[in-house]
Amino acid sequence: MKNKLIVTLTTVKGSRQYSLGQLARYVIALFIVLTMLSFAVSNWLLVRTQDDLAVLEEDHQQLTDQYELMLGTQSLYKTELDQLSASLSRVAFERDRLQAENIRMGDQLQEETIRVGELHATLGASLNGLEAMLNLDTTEEVTPERLEQLTLMANQRLFMLNSIPNGLPIQPLRITDKFGMRMHPIKKRRIMHNGIDYKANIGTPVYVTADGVVEYAGNKGDGYGKQVVVLHNFGFKTVYTHLNSTNVKRGELVHKGQKIAESGNTGKSTGPHLHYEVRYLYKPLNPAHFVSWNIANFDTIFSNVKSVKWASLKNLYPLNQSAQP
């Protein structure tokens, strides 16, 4: 009896006793220990999951803020440039007028000289602001030639940024696959991945990354599901696939930042995401170089993407400063 465990169960009908051997006691003890261990581990995982969720929510909010800022970058640059150009023109006109008045009105020369100095400082600050936006070295000299040169440069950059793909096509949760060789999640072998995969909830807006014309909108049955293909200037093309729905039709003209579709999980896909490609004369390029391209780091695209003969662009109007309309 000393190696047995006696368990007594009492009910309204009386009591009954059950004896358990030493092995049974070990099994029960092990069960109790495992139960307590499982409870402790579950609590730890729950706390850890809540912490990870909080971090993910914070990261998602940061991505949301960054995307909203990036999405309107070109429009903001254009608006600021137009306002700055108008302001510079008014200030320059007022400065010239006051200088002319100073010549004719000697008795008010001192007062007008002060006003000219103030306007000159305002013009210089505005000019430096334009140089900072273009990521150029600032200059202390304020001349009409410098103003004209900077305005022309800004307009040229904006023209290129509206013509060639740049910026994010979607507000993503994160990047799940980059451009290059990878292990295909369905085919289970290494093949070339010609774009970037952005994880996004079904129904997330998809925006075209440059002005162009819709070459295709629909489902080709090639595994990419519903897709939109857009032709852009200078031989560039962008592709948006695995869509849930499309908002444009073939032959439709679209402008940069226009919503053209909603992301989905159609075709051969392991989860909701947007597959985004940038092509030049049918050759896939790394979209990452174009996603990060903007007015401030304008020259980086020419060194990062060497397969495009950028040098020939300088002869095109309106990029050719000497060209006449």
Rank of each mutant, 00 (worst) to 15 (best):
M1G: 12
N3E: 15
N3P: 08
I6H: 00
T8K: 14
T10V: 12
K13Y: 12
G14H: 10
G14P: 05
R16C: 13
Q17Y: 07
Y18M: 10
I28S: 00
A29L: 04
F39R: 12
F39D: 10
W44F: 15
W44A: 15
L46C: 04
V47A: 12
V47P: 00
R48W: 10
T49D: 08
Q50V: 07
Q50N: 15
D51S: 10
L53A: 12
L56Q: 10
L56D: 14
Q61N: 10
Q66V: 05
Y67V: 02
L69N: 12
S75K: 07
S75G: 11
Y77F: 13
Y77G: 01
K78N: 03
L81S: 09
D82H: 10
Q83L: 03
Q83K: 13
A86I: 07
A86D: 15
L98M: 14
L98G: 09
Q99A: 11
Q99G: 05
Q99C: 02
E101H: 11
N102V: 05
D107I: 11
D107Q: 14
L109S: 09
A121V: 10
A121T: 14
L123D: 10
G124Q: 12
G129M: 07
E131F: 09
M133S: 10
L136K: 14
T139S: 13
V142E: 02
E148F: 04
E148I: 02
L152K: 14
M153D: 14
M153E: 15
M153I: 05
R157K: 15
N162V: 01
I164F: 08
L168A: 04
P169Y: 04
I170E: 00
I170L: 14
I170K: 00
Q171Y: 03
P172Q: 08
L173A: 06
I175Y: 04
T176P: 11
K178H: 09
G180S: 06
R182Y: 08
I191Y: 03
H193K: 01
H193V: 10
D197Y: 01
Y198W: 11
A200K: 02
N201T: 12
V208E: 11
T209G: 06
A210P: 02
A210M: 07
G212I: 06
V213K: 13
V214R: 01
Y216C: 03
A217C: 04
N219H: 06
K226M: 10
Q227D: 03
V230G: 08
F236N: 08
F236P: 13
H242D: 04
N244C: 04
T246P: 07
T246C: 10
N247Y: 06
V248P: 03
E252Q: 15
I260T: 05
A261F: 06
E262V: 12
E262L: 11
E262C: 08
S263I: 00
N265L: 02
K268I: 12
S269V: 04
G271D: 13
L274C: 06
E277R: 09
V278S: 03
Y282A: 11
Y282V: 09
K283F: 05
N286A: 13
N286L: 02
F290K: 05
F290P: 04
N294V: 02
I301A: 03
I301G: 07
N304Y: 07
S307Q: 15
S307E: 15
S307V: 14
K309D: 15
L313D: 01
P318I: 06
N320M: 01
Q321M: 08
A323E: 07
P325I: 03
